[in-house]
């Protein structure tokens, strides 16, 4: 159920709140992109370097790089998922709809846990 229009100043304030929510999610996108970008750049660069110039990357770094990259991408995805849930909650509340983020948070965290279990399983399978 959508709330009926109120005074002009209230409606304008709602629009500002929406813009603020938009900027908040944009900031989270930037932070997550930095984290995921670091992970991707590390993985791609070390992989390309190692394939084309074998032996030029120290074995310890070559072994550690994918784990660091996966961790950075995983943290970026986790933070972005939580930011999406928060954004949906804020915009629904602005529209005057009753919204509880608990169900969405539970779904998001459940999805991340399933994704983590899948990733851990893949690491174990590949390692053997």
């Amino acid at each position: 159920m959508t709330a009926p229009p109120q005074g002009v100043t209230t409606e304008l304030a709602k629009e500002r709140s929406r813009a603020a929510a938009e900027r908040t999610l944009t900031s989270w996108i930037q932070s997550s992109l930095t984290l995921m970008g670091f992970g991707l750049a590390l993985a791609s660069t070390i992989d390309a370097w190692n394939r084309h110039f074998p032996g030029s990357v120290a074995p310890a770094y070559a072994k550690l790089a994918p784990y660091v990259a996966l961790m950075a991408i995983g943290v970026g995805l986790f933070l972005l998922t939580l930011a999406i849930v928060g954004h949906v909650g804020r915009t629904k509340n602005l529209e005057g709809k009753e919204f509880s983020a608990n169900a969405l948070y539970a779904m998001a965290i459940g999805g991340i846990i399933v994704f983590g279990i899948f990733a851990a399983f893949a690491v174990v399978v590949q390692a053997h």
């Binding site: 992109l33 991408i73 970026g76 995805l77 972005l80 994704f115 990733a119």
Partner: peptide, 18 residues
């Protein structure tokens, strides 16, 4: 929300990269 669309696309790209 454009931010929501971009964030969801970025999550998909991130999962594929992962």
């Amino acid at each position: 929300s454009l931010a929501l669309t971009v964030a969801v696309c970025l999550v998909c790209i991130g999962v594929l990269a992962f």
